[in-house]
Each structure stands twice: as C-alpha cells, then as structure tokens.
Design a protein around this nucleic acid. Structure first.
Lengths: 338, 338
DNA sequence: CAAGTGTGCTGCATCGGTTGAGCAAAGATG
DNA sequence: CATCTTTGCTCAACCGATGCAGCACACTTG
C-alpha cells in the first residue's frame, strides 16, 4: 500500500504532489515556480507534475514561499478614505498595475487617523511587504522612518514627505488654473476686484500649495486676497458648512464665487448654500479641486479639476521599478474634464 | 567577543533578540506572543525581553508565524469597484471590524470581472486567508467551491450564493418602499395609471428582486407595468444613457418618474436627461436604490435609498464569529436618509 | 534524606517551500 | 576503455516562529 497521500482536512502541499507524482519535493517546487529549466528537469516530468497539480487543485502556500525567498512580492498601500472618486481610482489603478507586475497588492484605509496609519504600516511590515506606499498620509516621514528601520522601501503619494520619494499633483499650478477659470466664469457676477473665497483643506503641503496657486492667480489678475477669505477648515463637510455660516454672520454678503478644496467639503458648502438661502436664486460659481462624475453631470455652476491618477501611478511605478534613493518630489499636472 | 547580533541589511528576528537578551528563542517568542505565563517565564525575563524588543524596533514576521500556526488571522474580501459610496463604506467598515477582532483585512477590487474575481480568490487562498468574503460577486458559488476545495470558509455579501451563507439587503422590500415614494412624489406630474421606468442593473438576484419589488408596489397601487418599462441594461452609465435614448425614440414621451438601480447608471440617466432636453424645464422624479451624500444635497427631485451597511456587516461578522454551516441568506432592511 | 512538587527555563522538531551542492547514469571524446 | 561532459534528478539545510517534551534546581513533606 502506498503512503497515504494527504490527511483529510489538510491542504495539499508539494510533498503530497511529490508522492503522487513519484518525484522529489524539489522537482515539484521547481516545476511549479518556473525554475525547472535551470534545474534541468525533463519536459516529461514537468508536464506530469503540472498535470497532477492541476488535477489536485494545488495552491502554493505563499507564507512558506515568502518565508524562504528574500522578496515577498507583496506591496502595501495605505489610503485615508474610500469616500471619494479620487482615492477610489488611485486604489483601483494601483491594484491593477501591481498585479501586472506580479505583485500582490494589500491596501488598507486609515480613516485620516495618524495613529491608525502607524498601526497599519507596522502590520504591513510584519506581513513582509517589499514596499509600502503612503497615500495622503498625515505624517509620511514617520512612516518612512518605521519602514527604513525594518529595511522596507517606502514611497509617498498625493502628499509629499521629506524622507522618501513622492508623487503628487501639481497643486499650485492646478489651483492657479482652476482659480483663473472661476474668476473668468464669475466675472459677470462678481463685484469687480472682489476675490474668491477659499474653502476646506487642512494645513498640509497640498493646501498650502493650493492656497499659493489661488493667490498667484488673483495677483496675476490684479486682485488682492484678504486672509479672511481663506477658510482652511479641514476636510469634514460640517466644518466647511459652519465656517461659511460664521463668515456670513461676520461679513454679510459672501463673494459670488469660491474655490473648494475637494468634494468632501463641497458637500458642506452645497448644504450651507441650500440651507441658508444666502445666494437666493443666483447660486455662486464654484471651482472644486477634485472630480466627481455625478457632481459634474448634475451641476452647471461647478468647475471640477481632475487629478491625473493614471499619470501619477505611472510615475509611482516608474520609481518602484527603478528604486531611486533620493527623496525627490514628482509633480504631475492636473487636468480638466474635456 | 559576543556572537554578532544581526547582519546589517537583514531584519531583526527572535534569534537576534535571544542573543541580545541572553535567553532562548523559545522564551522570546512566548513573551512576545503572550503565552509566557502559561510557559512559566518569570516576570523579570518577560520585561527584559519586551524592553529589548521595543528598543530594537522588532516586528514579528507574520509569514513565519502564520506558517507555523493553523490560523493565519488573515481575512480576505473581494469587492467589484471603489467607484461608489456603498462599496466604499462596506470596505471601510469591514476593515475596522476585522481589526477589532485581531484579524488582518486584505481587500481587493475585481472590476466586475469574473475572471479577475477567480484569480483574486485564488491569490487570497494562496496567502492563507482564514476566511473569504465575496462582495457583489458575479459568480459567488464558483468562489465558494474554490474556497471549499482549499478548506477555506467563504461568505457572500451584497449578492447571495446558493453554497455559502449570504448577507444582503432586503432588495424587494426596499425597492417596494422606494417605488411607493417615487409614485407618491410624482403623483401630480404623472399621467394617472402610468407606471415608472426602471433603469439599470443586470440579470442577477438583486436586480430580479428589485424589479419584483418595483412591480409589487405598482400592483398595490393598481398600476400595470409593461415589460418595455424595464431597462435592466447593466451598471455602466453609457448603457443606461443609450437605453433611454432608444426608448424615447420608440415610445415618444417617457414617464415623468423613474427608478434607477444605483448611482452608477444614475450618472448616465442624468446625462441623458440634460443632453436630450426630453423633459424640458420639468425634470423627472427619480428614485435611486443607492445613496450618495453629494447627490442628495445637490438635487431635489432624487429620492435616495440607503443600504444599511453597518447592519449588514454586523450580520456578516456574527456569521464569521459563529461559523454556521448552512447556506442561509440574511436580508437586512434598507433605510432612507432621515 | 529520599521522594514529591513547583518554578523557570531550554532543545528540538515542525510548518511548506526554496536553494546550493552533489550524485548516478548516459553519451561524447581521445 | 578510461576520462570528461551533459542530463536529470535528489538531499539536506534553511527561512522565522511555535509548541511539546524535558531538564536542572529549589523547596516542601513524611
């Protein structure tokens, strides 16, 4: 009687396949991972092993494989939220590009919570990711340090860090272009020389740059921007809503046009506009540094800027593939839909 | 001279910690994974090891740990797309509930592509997930079979299967309630006795049930529904857009109210309404079996039904925790925002 | 003081693949 | 026919963590 091939509940292993095929575990392993030609296994044996593996529905144990190799072929990404199309499309594109390279993507969302970010980074390192992408992280350099201590490569996306290479949008240029479009669209409805209102975002690199682009466009148009026009209230819709209410209470009539930092505060802005009735029948012109197809098809008064997600991920994977050592920042131009 | 503690590029292991602390690898392992009391390690040694591990920034190798234990503590989820708030909130909630249970969530998006779904399921099994959740899968039973062959538990979410337990929305009841609301809201604008139009969705369980609920509500209101009023065109916006155009070309004036199966076809519906000018200044009443905060704040004529994601995930994890064997289907009631 | 009990630790095999070294047999070469 | 080369495969160590068995020592008990 032949040796029992496999215990009932247990998963099939290369040792089971070895007994079934009458070959050694080494032969089975090398056939299944493609190194068999280098190891001079005959085509006949390779085919037999492949056939039996297929018949038995064998699945490689990546934990065991990853333990022995020096590369795990895992690539991690942390992302703040899944509540908007921008991060959604980043994740979708990231996963598909990772898979195209034979990497297994692990993505986790950290709720814009810096403590969770660190925990998630540690967990990914524990799972032996080869590389970690920190997307829109609140403290990218902290993550880079943790990764470096564990010998894991890290890259930043969307928000830059000083310690690792970063791929971000051209926030200043994009904000400038968007501001110009809002100024042009609202020219008929604005008091001449009146600046736009800036709403949303928190004091990070991107907001700073966007505000700078916002100011640049104003000064190019010869319009002065007062600091009270900048409401960088964070990303929560409620905060934007409250800030508008407070500003209106203090200043009376608000400008007939505004720059909103993303679709999340946009929700609060729209809510306030509708609820307050501040603008009556003449809704303000809005520019949004973010794109959502439903918003763009539902509205006429909102100009949406679209960040070039495919372009950014192209640059990101270029860096992943080439392993640059310096903490360069790549800025990808933004787009407008059609 | 003491034995060299660690090679430069390599990651710290329990063996390094053992030499550093003068204890055995076994002691280090048991201290770090919490089994040290059972193993009668002294508090003094436990504290020393913990301190050294912290100082050195040690991170457990989960591949090695997972290989040795019978449970990997990995839980996988496949999800069709990240392009809407429904799946986004499912993933966010799933991740946080998994983490609360000490599980590491692995989520991957399969682009509504059945081949990718299978590939992703196989990859997750290869990575030794303890359990796999198939969300909105095109062929959930195929995934269940693949999981079963590998001895991996699987559950369905959003769309039910016949071979594994499922948690889904009460599609029929929700569609009935939504249809009633649309009928009521549009009563003044509809030709009496005229049915609504049904747009979007593909021939799966959920669409079938939603159409049934749609029909139920009509028959309860004494309205007959012609088959030509059902445009189950799939989820792509373009398909919904084209179908409306074709129907209008054939039938002339469309009903003044419609039921749209989710926010994705809604985009096409709105686009067609705006582009065609079919309804002139009197936009149709719309009910959408899905919820998006931006849409709900931007529009007055769209009633949005919200699927109870927290409730569904509560039920899902109840099943994960209790390991039921039967392929029961749990239907969770839907909500309306406020 | 021999036997029994408890404390605090270590040694070794093991999980499932991967890898470098090596071995036997067949074929080529002088 | 002895030697060298090539072909086709196997052996054993190893990756890092875990769990069982067991050992040395101290302390109690009759």
């Amino acid at each position: 009687m032949a040796k029992e091939s496999k215990a009932p509940g247990r998963r099939m292993t290369i040792y089971d396949l070895a007994t079934l095929s009458g070959a050694s575990p080494t032969a089975v392993s090398s056939v299944l991972n493609g190194t068999w030609k280098k190891r001079r296994i005959s085509v006949a044996l390779a085919e037999r092993i492949t056939r039996i593996a297929d018949e038995q529905g064998y699945a490689l144990n990546m934990q065991a494989s990853g333990l022995r190799r020096d590369k795990s072929h895992l690539i991690g990404m942390i992302v703040p939220k899944y509540d908007n199309r921008y991060f959604g499309s980043i994740v979708e594109k990231f996963e598909s590009m990772a898979r195209d390279r034979g990497l297994f993507p692990i993505v986790t969302c950290t709720q814009r919570d810096s403590e969770l970010e660190i925990q998630a980074a540690r967990a990914m390192i524990a799972h032996q990711v080869d590389c970690l992408i920190a997307t829109g992280a609140t403290d990218p350099d902290r993550i880079t340090e943790i990764c470096a201590a564990a010998g894991v490569r890290s890259l930043n996306l969307d928000l830059p860090g000083r310690l690792a290479p970063s791929v971000i949008s051209d926030n200043r240029g994009g904000a400038n272009a968007l501001t110009q479009r809002i100024l042009a669209a609202s020219a008929g409805d604005r008091v001449p020389g009146q600046p736009l209102l800036y709403v949303g975002g928190r004091p990070d690199h991107n907001t700073t740059e966007r505000i700078q682009g916002f100011r640049d466009a104003h000064s190019e148009a010869g319009i002065a921007v007062d600091d009270t026009m900048i409401l960088a209230t964070g990303y929560a819709p409620e905060k934007a809503e409250r800030a508008l209410g407070e500003l209106a209470a203090k200043h009376g009539k608000l400008p007939a046009a505004m720059f909103v930092s993303s679709t999340i505060p946009l929700e609060g802005v729209i809510r306030w506009i509708k609820a307050s009735g501040h603008f009556g029948d003449c809704p303000p012109h809005i520019g949004c540094f973010d794109w959502d197809p439903l918003v763009s098809v539902l509205t006429e008064n909102i100009i949406m800027l679209r960040q070039d997600v495919p372009g950014m991920l192209q640059e990101l994977f270029k860096m992943i593939d080439s392993e640059p050592a310096d903490a360069r920042v790549i800025e990808v131009p933004t787009l407008f839909q059609e």
